[in-house]
Design a binder for these strands. Sequence first.
DNA 1: TCGTCAATTTACCATTTGGTAAAAAACAAA
DNA 2: TTTGTTTTTTACCAAATGGTAAATTGACGA
Lengths: 218, 218
Amino acid sequence: MKDTVKPDGRGPKGSPAAPAVKRSRIQTRNRKLILDAALEVFSTHGFRGATLDQIATEAGLSKPNILYYFDGKEAIHVTLLNKLMETWLDPLEQLNPQGDPLDEILAYVRRKLDMAQAYPRESRLFANEILQGAPRMAPHLEARLKPLVDAKATLIADWAEAGRIAPVDPRHLIFSIWATTQHYADFEAQVNVLMPEGGVFPGAAGYLETMYRRMLTV
Amino acid sequence: MKDTVKPDGRGPKGSPAAPAVKRSRIQTRNRKLILDAALEVFSTHGFRGATLDQIATEAGLSKPNILYYFDGKEAIHVTLLNKLMETWLDPLEQLNPQGDPLDEILAYVRRKLDMAQAYPRESRLFANEILQGAPRMAPHLEARLKPLVDAKATLIADWAEAGRIAPVDPRHLIFSIWATTQHYADFEAQVNVLMPEGGVFPGAAGYLETMYRRMLTV
DNA sequence: TCGTCAATTTACCATTTGGTAAAAAACAAA
DNA sequence: TTTGTTTTTTACCAAATGGTAAATTGACGA
């Protein structure tokens, strides 16, 4: 019997992430089902706390069928993390050196808050990974996030230097933007206890705009 | 044979948290060892990701010996969470209605940041629990945290009303303080990648004081 | 120093979990 | 419809995991 060929075109235990082969309709659909289910499960239980059975049930597929599409639990997690990284970097990448400094930063805050609202599961997946010491993401952080943050920190420092925003440590500014926006996704369970009235995001948007405006206005 | 009596004075599967019986030196020492080991393990892997074997190894005890001191994995986790809640509430409780509003809030920020630095594992234990939907802490949040936050939010609203600090939504202010301070503990793995130079906390303290001063100064 | 209770170890067990092999079913090109 | 391929199911397995029973060792007051 010849080796089973997995739908992503890799042989058994193959590794390249890039889809070397065009996927069938069924493959496309089921991979999406699995990744969506896995996002749900990993983001609420963390990697070790999630089980393939949970993912299978959530996806409406059998466990062996899931392992037909992915090489294992870890491969699913890694796939999610890889996809996530680009999405996560995007709002910061959009910070425009040519724009008005205050507007740019406030727009960045806005984008991050919108993402926390639109993609809370992704935010929690990321939070879980970092909380646990970034075991599978550390290389990514080093290779992709760090250079981007370095570049944008320099940009913000230049803006401050030129007196176009108030003096500020760019890195701590970025940390505080991440922390305050992602908080509404990551700590949703707590926020919901303390602000029961529906729709916390409009208030959050107003608060954060005010805070960073007061922080950065010269 | 008579029922084995556990060292906390409860019979098998007993429940009261209060130590009904004074503990021996050995009990005190070993319970501490276990709780410390469990804090380490739970805070990095989450509840489901942690194993009794890990905790046992970390504590330097055997697994059955651990189950001699605690009714099970869940009981250890609950014990940690209960202890944690009081520690966690304390800095906010200290917010003094008689003090100068700006000073009081800045001191609160300072206390929270100091806690993130001194007790990062506790911060991550808490973050893990909330991330996963607060399954074992929701009652606590409702019963202890919510009343406190309500009270302090009213206090801050009064300060703003009286023009002693700039107008602000008190609850979002509190959220942002939690988010920005705990970020340095919870996302330590990421922070360390982006700010390799040792000692991020002095810079964080300076940044946060500046931010909340600018935010709240009338 | 002896006896008793506390503490610990040894030897297990049932379930859960990630994963596999191989057969069966569904599908698609001819 | 036939044939080769893709997809799914069935039936497993080995390791890990939470937990227990009972025997063994240790501490310590009378």
